[in-house]
């Protein structure tokens, strides 16, 4: 117990460090003392402090929000499907959000980022509901696998529609390609304000439901013997994953890999206890997104690389190496 608490505390420390870096590093490096003053004793005449208050705080808040949501969503998803390679993106969430944003852009319904947040959230949610309706009908054994397949199929369908719209509409493509790169720039914390309570409540609910999900992960017979309502707990978890992943995508654009890798690494650190896994995945996800964002800010000056691109690039390499080291029983 105390060892786990120590690990969780360590992860929190890493997150605090990542937040400090995210506030300090960028096109204009600002020392931590100035950052501290900007937060505690703000002096509007100081240009550096102004940068921290106006842009850096916003992107840090959005990064923490999206990263924590994705980390927890991934932990829940992997426990639910009993598949260490499951990712919330499997529910078609990224593709649904992308198509919704593209439709809103091409019809002129949502031009600014503030208007794109609810659109992306609704699109992501609808896609996940559709995947769930197709893949988990009857809740028979093996449902999680079908869920993943339905997600792959819907993702392909929605992506091809998205491309079709983009190819006949160049100005939409121009705006969309920036959104899809998953960048934290140019986004204000106020725009994502409604998402913060959603994410907080969902993480809290995940903590409460995690004991029962653990019982389901033991096997359906064991769970039934323990008196757990399997169908109900599955539905609750899917709703939570949908809310968390949709909120993350709405806030920061499609970010792959965080939901996949963070719970994986967290499990290696802290073991299979789901409540602790949720806590560590929240801290770790937030830290990973912030660090990837910081890397994206400094590797290609004077421009920046969106956090969705850096996470996919770094994450993909780690994933492939992980697959190589994995002990696979010959199929």
């Amino acid at each position: 117990m105390s060892k786990r608490a120590a690990i969780a505390g360590l992860c929190l420390l890493v997150l605090v460090g990542a937040i400090a870096l995210s506030l300090a590093i960028g096109a204009r490096s600002i020392d931590l003392e100035t950052v501290w003053h900007a937060l505690t004793a703000f002096d509007p005449s100081d240009k550096d402090q102004l940068i921290v208050r106006t842009t850096r705080v916003s992107r840090t808040v959005i990064g923490v929000l999206a990263g924590a949501a994705l980390g927890v969503a991934g932990a829940l998803m992997q426990s639910l499907t009993r598949n260490p390679f499951a990712d919330p993106g499997l529910l078609g969430i990224n593709a649904g959000a992308s198509l919704a944003v593209v439709i809103a852009l091409s019809t002129g319904l949502a031009t600014g980022f503030a208007a794109q947040v609810p659109v992306a959230f609704v699109g992501a949610g609808l896609a996940a509901i559709l995947v769930y309706a197709i893949g988990a009908r009857g809740a028979a054994a093996g449902a999680p696998v079908r869920l993943a397949l339905a997600g792959v199929a819907l993702t392909a369908l929605l992506t091809s529609i998205t491309y079709a719209v983009l190819m006949v509409n160049e100005s939409t493509l121009d705006q969309y390609r920036m959104w899809v790169a998953g960048s934290l720039t140019g986004r204000q914390a106020e725009d994502v304000l409604p998402l913060i309570p959603i994410v907080l409540v969902a993480i809290l609910a995940a903590l409460i439901a995690s004991r029962q999900l653990e019982a389901v992960a033991l096997g359906e017979d064991a769970a039934r013997a323990l008196g757990v309502n399997i169908a109900a707990i599955r539905t609750v978890i899917i709703v939570l994953v949908t809310l968390l992943a949709a909120a993350a995508t709405a806030a920061a654009g499609p970010i792959v890999f965080v939901g996949l890798a963070v719970p994986h690494l967290a499990r290696a650190l802290i073991g299979a206890s789901l409540p602790w896994l949720v806590v560590v995945s929240a801290f770790g996800g937030a830290a990973l997104v912030l660090l990837c964002d910081v890397v994206g800010r400094v590797v290609a000056p004077p421009g920046e690389i969106g956090v969705g691109i850096t996470t996919a690039f770094i994450g993909g390499i780690i994933f492939a190496l992980m697959a190589r080291r994995m002990k696979v029983v010959e199929l």
Partner: peptide, 27 residues
């Protein structure tokens, strides 16, 4: 599994290039 990982990397490269090029070329 290795293919899925490399797919992520390749996709991120495409997306980066897409954000950097002229809109007409992006189409």
């Amino acid at each position: 599994l290795a293919g899925i990982g490399i797919g992520f990397v390749a996709q991120s490269l495409s997306q980066y290039a897409l954000t950097r090029m002229d809109v007409h070329d992006a189409g």
